Amino acid sequence: MTEQITATRFHAAEGVGDWRCLYHVTSAYFRTGSLTEGITLVDAIGRLTDEEYVTVDLRHNGVTVNLLRRDVALARRISAAATELNLVAEPARVQLLSICLDALDAPSILPFWQAILGYDPIGDDYLTDPARRHPGLDFQRMDEPRPQRNRIHLDIAVPHDQAETRIAAALAAGGHLVSDEHAPKWWTLADAEGNEACIATWVGRD
């Protein structure tokens, strides 16, 4: 199996401009003009690899490819296959969504959420959809109860070169910046009623 490398090393490599690291996932989106074009690309990817760390999402207007390992060589081959089919990548279209639950004792409540969702655990603070179709559930540690603060929020991992654009759009739509203390790992924003969400990137996580 391919050695896992850092996001910094992946993005420094040649020939991976179609791809963006999002937490543990590396993603590319290729726009298609029809379902038939998408199936052709998926078929080409299937001839390139049968690695279990590759997932493909096929829609009528595009194909999203996720690599659960930062495999530079495979990313290059998939991009080349798309180029041969005259399909253009749109890196701004990829993102990774997690639902985050603030918890005082994550290991004690994780089994409940695992049972109710039918998810698989990763460590003692994260649950993932075994079919890789739905958002993960991330348990974030609290040091003390916060009765006046939302306990659930969304984390949206976006391409590192799209974070400022996404933040600007949220601010223009009536939101406000709660904190940029941890930027560029993440920025915390909120809507007009104080409901929070985080825009996150891979930068600073290597």
Rank of each mutant, 00 (worst) to 15 (best):
A28K: 02
F30Q: 00
F30V: 04
T32K: 14
S34T: 13
S34V: 09
S34Y: 08
E37R: 06
G38I: 07
G38N: 12
G38R: 08
G38V: 08
I39W: 13
T40F: 05
D43G: 06
A44E: 13
I45K: 00
G46S: 06
G46L: 05
L48D: 06
T49P: 01
D50Y: 07
E51L: 09
E51C: 06
E51D: 13
E51W: 09
E52S: 10
E52H: 11
Y53C: 01
V54C: 02
T55Y: 05
V56N: 01
L58C: 11
L58A: 06
L58Q: 07
N61T: 11
N61Y: 09
V63D: 08
T64F: 03
V65I: 15
N66F: 07
N66M: 10
L67C: 03
L67P: 00
L67V: 00
L68W: 14
L68Y: 14
R70E: 11
R70C: 07
D71Y: 01
A73E: 15
R76F: 03
R76W: 03
R76D: 04
R77C: 01
I78H: 00
I78S: 03
A80C: 02
A81Y: 02
A81L: 08
A82P: 01
L85V: 08
N86G: 03
A89V: 07
E90F: 09
P91G: 01
A92V: 02
A92P: 02
R93S: 04
V94Q: 01
V94C: 06
Q95G: 12
S98T: 05
S98L: 11
S98M: 10
C100F: 04
A103E: 06
A103C: 12
A106F: 09
P107E: 02
S108F: 03
I109M: 15
L110N: 04
P111V: 05
F112H: 11
W113S: 08
W113K: 10
A115C: 07
A115Y: 10
A115N: 12
I116A: 11
I116Y: 12
L117S: 15
L117C: 13
L117N: 09
G123I: 10
L127A: 08
P130L: 11
R133H: 08
H134T: 14
P135T: 08
G136M: 10
L137E: 07
L137V: 15
D138T: 06
F139D: 00
Q140V: 15
Q140M: 12
D143T: 15
E144D: 09
E144Q: 10
P147L: 10
P147W: 10
P147E: 12
